[in-house]
């Protein structure tokens, strides 16, 4: 398996926000990611879906090095991910991530959650960081919760805080790993609304989600993964109405049937 021959885009001249070229990953013997080739343009919105265990989380976690890939190249904002810690830090500063379980810091107030990284990573003065934090809290429509602790908020509010926390670092790319799947149905909308707003502002986004309505509305491209491989990718129109592979059809029939 040669890396270059399967690459969709090998120029690497800064046209893409993210390039994954022939990426493989193993957990011990288990081959989680098999020859992933993916180029994400600036301002592009990508929705990744697929059955449980297909490697969706692993894929996006490789992009900010929460997981290490063993073969292939990952280039984020023209920085190649290697073992160089400096580069990893650089990339993490440019890439925000929102998790299924929010991962807010429970010992800090909402405001401190938001200002922590700008102050300690970006070396922003405290006042400025607080202004920025309030700006983003207002954007996710919960400025009045600033002094509360995460444990005192609802799930939907926590997830919006988590989104605001990432945005405070002024990232160029946002990764979402099933941001609504731990939420009660009535809270899903408030989070999706925030994400739609963000998309409309032109953020580069990769979203792992099963919210097909969201995919339809926002995505430039939908990617279907199964067994660690990208099975199919297309614009939402084509993807939902005219899926090519059998596995995609099966998957779509399963998740659209209920």
């Amino acid at each position: 398996m040669s890396d270059a021959q399967t690459a969709t885009s090998t120029d690497g001249n800064g046209g893409s926000a993210i390039q994954m070229i022939g990426v493989h990953k193993w957990y011990g013997q288990f081959h989680v990611l098999k020859d992933i080739n993916l180029a994400v343009d600036r301002k592009e919105k990508i929705v990744v879906c697929g059955p449980s265990g297909s490697g969706k989380s692993t894929l996006i976690r490789c992009i900010n090095r929460l997981e290490e890939h063993q073969r292939g190249q990952i280039i984020v904002e023209d920085i190649e991910l290697t073992n160089d810690l400096k580069k990893i830090d650089e990339i993490r500063r440019e890439v925000g991530m929102v998790f299924q379980h929010f991962n807010l810091f429970p010992h800090l107030s909402v405001l401190d959650n938001l200002t922590l990284a700008p102050i300690w990573v970006r070396k922003m003065p405290k006042d400025e960081a607080e202004d920025v934090a309030m700006k983003f809290l207002t954007r996710v429509k919960i400025p009045e919760q600033a002094t509360k602790f995460p444990g005192q908020l609802s799930g939907g509010q926590q997830q919006r805080v988590a989104i605001a926390r990432s945005l405070c670092m002024n990232p160029k790319i946002m990764l979402f790993d099933e941001p609504t799947s731990a939420l009660d149905p009535e809270m899903i909308k408030e989070v999706l609304d925030v994400m739609v707003d963000l998309a409309e502002e032109g953020m580069t986004m990769i979203v792992v989600t099963h919210e097909m309505g969201f995919a339809n509305r926002v995505a430039d491209r939908v990617i279907f993964m199964d067994g660690g491989e990208v099975i199919e990718q297309a614009d939402p129109e084509t993807f939902f109405n005219n899926p090519q592979s059998e596995r995609t059809k099966l998957f779509l029939s399963q998740i659209l049937s209920h």
Binding site: R65, R92, R93, M97, F99, L104, F105, A117, R165
Partner: peptide, 9 residues
């Protein structure tokens, strides 16, 4: 992971 994703060393 939350801390790492924010770029904290």
């Amino acid at each position: 992971e939350g801390a790492q994703a924010l770029g904290l060393s």
